[in-house]
Design a protein around this nucleic acid. Structure first.
Lengths: 210, 210, 210, 210
DNA sequence: CATGAATGAGTGTTCATTCAT
DNA sequence: TATGAATGAACACTCATTCAT
């Protein structure tokens, strides 16, 4: 083994350790809830003593914040991808719905944490999460608004209510979805995308059929 | 004052006290979350010392379970009322959606607790909550199924996914609704009912227009 | 026993408990030093478990602060008494020195804590202690200044240095004085008072003898 | 470069490193107190990680003991110098006072540690410190005794009390002296020496003037 | 020599719960 | 019924120390 290989191994191991801790925390926080979960639990999941965990984190809340940042970053990347399509508004909404649903399903524990534990962040960290959530809502509201302007939405649709409705439906995914369940994530994502479109467009969303 | 009156007064007071404690717990658990909230917090909200609270409850979890039972009972009453209508399936779904939404909005703190804190019940109490939730889901799924059978649903609709979707949307209400906000509960309930119908029926949900 | 007696007993007991805690803390902090002493130690000295101590205090630092406040209040009373005499400046200095020394000796553990642990107070509490110390120094400096103005001090005496010198000598008392030692506190106080006068006045402090 | 030079360089570097560590510890212990200061703090002051510190020390207490030994050794050298003068007792006392004061001021952090942290040594190390302190006190007491025997002390002077008094005044120096303050160390040392003499001799200390 | 991961005992503090008054 | 002192187990976090690399 070369010196470089050893060094790379060290770096990789360290990074993996940090990542291990984060992923262990995701599992534990998801299972027990952030407040009920103890640092001990996370340490046990990693396979070290609780004191050792503090090589990787500064505090329990740090660990939670770290999960949020990591998730938010990856989520935003996905959103950017999903928004830039060149299609009819209603199809862009469907596409957005499918991408979001799929991302939710693939990161279901993080999403669950994101949806329920943000209250336990304090100070600026909480503000940041709220800001990101609002950005997300506004992007969705924007899409729905475009559908409405294109005359493809139910005529009496309230954009805000629709946004909250769909947002809620998505956030409900972690409450029932099991990775080992019978339905492949893609199928669920397609169904949810269709339902999102339905929610917004009502009859207008149906292809012109007899 | 007669002896009977005193006794009745005592009973009524006790009942009120019990109810006071429950309502205080609802407020406190909603604000801080069940785990973070302390018995002290609840006692302070009631206006007694924490030791005194144990005249009305047996344990903290008892208090949570009590909230669930109380809420579930009242919720089921509402559901029974909402289900017995003699109308077209799609209108029964709309009616159900409106009633549920309205009940959610009027009991928003309890609903929030119901949606997020059920994990912290143990043993049979948890089972009961899951059972009730499933009953509720099945009732909703039943309604959606009837809509589908009546040919008024989107043709490729998956009843289960639709149920989860709508369930999630409703459970999302506590995340944004504020009692002192600009929109009256009835308006929100109507909008949510319409969106529920849209979700299920897509084009079919629109009244037959040209 | 009358109701009043019972009530008074309760109050007295509570007060005693609080006072017990404070005095236990004085002993423990004096023996081990504030940082090394644990809440456990104090609790053991009181005869309760460490958790129980938090009925009487809010934090360990609170306990330290409490000692400071209690000591400072009593010390200031003594200083006020000692300052108001109507005598020659040098005799007022002697009187002050005797009173201070005596108070130090009678409160030797508190004085030791006062002299060494003030650094471990934070924020305003530290400021307060520094302020009180400065007030004390200024009072002593004032007395010395008056002796000097009366022409009864050594001619080249620096008032500040003398103040620090004497202050240091007094603060050194806890380093050697033992309550059960051979010398009665009064004798020590007289000797220290004489030495304080000597420090300031040199030859001038001697009574005019042939 | 010769092998010897390399070796010498290594030794010198090691010695310097050791000295660096000791001096860093003096600064850190003085600032935070021995108990509150962490090995990490000392390591950071040296510029290495805490694990690396254990190449130079065996334990935290070792580090403290080392400071005491180093300081005591240098202090004793100074004392020996200061004691051998051939002068009148009172002038020897003054000379001793000036030398001590000056040494205190020049090693103010070590003196502060010496005065306050000796309790945290254990076993023989504590005994040694106490022994050294006693030796120092006896030397001072001896000088004062000689002054008294020479008839140059206040007639009712108690040698022990005077020793404690002066010892305390000297130990108080670190409580107010700042290196960057307005008064040069020599001026302070002269003043303190004069005050020491005053303390002991009272009127007798004044040169026979009219 | 230097690193930093790992340990494990310990610290201050919280809190649900009990119980004598 | 109400109090509040007391408990004891638990928690987040710290730190001196060790050791493989």
């Amino acid at each position: 083994m070369t010196v470089a290989a050893v060094r790379e191994g060290g770096v990789r191991q360290r990074r993996n350790r940090r990542q291990d801790v984060l992923e262990a925390a995701v599992r534990v926080f998801h299972e027990k809830g952030y407040v009920s979960a103890t640092i001990q639990d996370v340490a046990a999941e990693v396979g070290v003593l609780k004191g050792s965990l503090y090589h990787y984190i500064d505090s329990k809340e740090d660990l939670l914040a770290w999960i949020f940042e990591d998730s938010a970053g990856r989520f935003m990347e996905m959103l950017d991808e999903a928004s830039g399509l060149d299609e009819r508004p209603v199809e862009r909404l469907r596409s957005f719905g499918r991408s979001c649903s799929l991302w939710y399903l693939r990161n279901i524990e993080r999403v669950a944490i994101y949806a329920t534990e943000w209250k336990h962040l304090t100070g600026n960290r909480r503000k940041n999460v709220v800001t990101i959530r609002e950005a997300y809502e506004q992007r969705l509201a924007g899409l729905i608004g475009e559908v409405k302007e294109a005359g493809e939405a139910a005529p009496d649709l309230d954009v805000n209510f629709a946004t909250y409705f769909i947002f809620g439906a998505l956030n409900g995914l972690p409450n029932w979805y099991r990775r080992r369940g019978p339905d492949p994530a893609e199928r669920i994502a397609d169904a949810y995308a269709a339902q999102i479109v339905n929610t917004v467009s009502g009859a207008a969303g149906r292809p012109r059929s007899g």
